[in-house]
Design a binder for these strands. Structure first.
Lengths: 163, 163
DNA sequence: CTGCAAATGTTATAATGTTTCAAAATTTGC
DNA sequence: GCAAATTTTGAAACATTATAACATTTGCAG
């Protein structure tokens, strides 16, 4: 049996978060971008959840910890993080998730479980390749690819058979 | 030079619309679904535009022609049309476009021009295949695929070179 | 330390989507 | 046909997501 992907099995997630923050710090330094406290905190909140967070979820969490922020604060932080490839936006959910391949040039592809809400980011270069050549066969110049796959994750498939 | 795809060249678009409405009527009859006047009108409005329409765009158009509808009216019509595969939702734009392959079982893939706003629906079974096998390699059961490619259509690539 | 640019705060508002309950139309069983 | 059941639509209120505009603060370069 193949080892299941990370989000689908128990692990010390705080390590993921720390690693992501360390990576983000390095990437920002390299790009001469400022990972300010708010931006860092938003990134951390996003990473602490394996499920995508909405802007207003983040807003609520900031509020709960005493930082009484308004929507633009969060959206600006998110814009920054998107811009620097540190998070992805999941259009079909209006929400955000940490990028597991920050820094590397890639097209995100997401497996979104409709049952448990977990999201797995896939690299899948062969898919990206297929998509790009399909676009090019129409003489279309692709710039940004949104690829979101909703369905059932391995764990939830098993559970739904117990009905 | 290959013939460019339909939305990218001039044509009598009213024919497209009529054909789409005729197809929709047939499909609904076959599925025992009721293509009521509102639903048909919403479908027609969507088809008359090559660019995706937002729910509130449709609402405005209905209002302009005297039908003073509230948001749920439009969203319900859209839900119906989505359910029966007559339109697609473009998540990344919060908007809707007519399905060019209504009735056939397929996964939509969209080429969205960021310049002119036109959208081309592609069949691309080899892409669908690649996506599905990538999902299955993670033991994920795919149900719904959102694949939206933003970029420049052939015409707008040419124009942007004239800068 | 001063002036500029970037980042954040603040208020208001726009855009998108849903809940709920009531009324009307359509189908179904008889 | 007709009455009950179902589906569809109307209408009002509300919830969620996102942005605009402008004031203030912070960090940095000279």
């Amino acid at each position: 049996m193949p080892e299941s992907a990370l989000p689908y099995r128990p692990h010390n997630h705080q390590n993921c978060v720390s690693q992501a923050l360390a990576d983000a710090t390095a990437i920002c330094r390299q790009q001469n971008a400022r990972l300010t406290p708010i931006r860092e905190r938003v990134l951390e909140l996003i990473w602490q959840s394996h499920k995508p967070l909405g802007a207003y979820d983040i807003l609520g969490m900031l509020g709960a910890e005493g930082h009484n922020a308004a929507p633009p604060t969060v959206y600006r932080a998110l814009d920054f993080l998107l811009q620097h490839g540190l998070v992805h936006r999941i259009s079909s959910l209006n929400s955000f998730i940490g990028c597991t391949q920050a820094g590397e040039h890639h097209r995100g592809m997401f497996l979104i479980c409709r049952q448990c809400g977990n999201v797995l980011e896939l690299a899948a270069p062969e898919v990206a390749q297929a998509v790009e050549s399909a676009a090019e066969s129409e003489a279309f110049l692709p710039e940004d690819i949104t690829l979101e796959i909703a369905g059932l994750c391995p764990r939830c498939q098993v559970e739904s058979r117990h009905d």
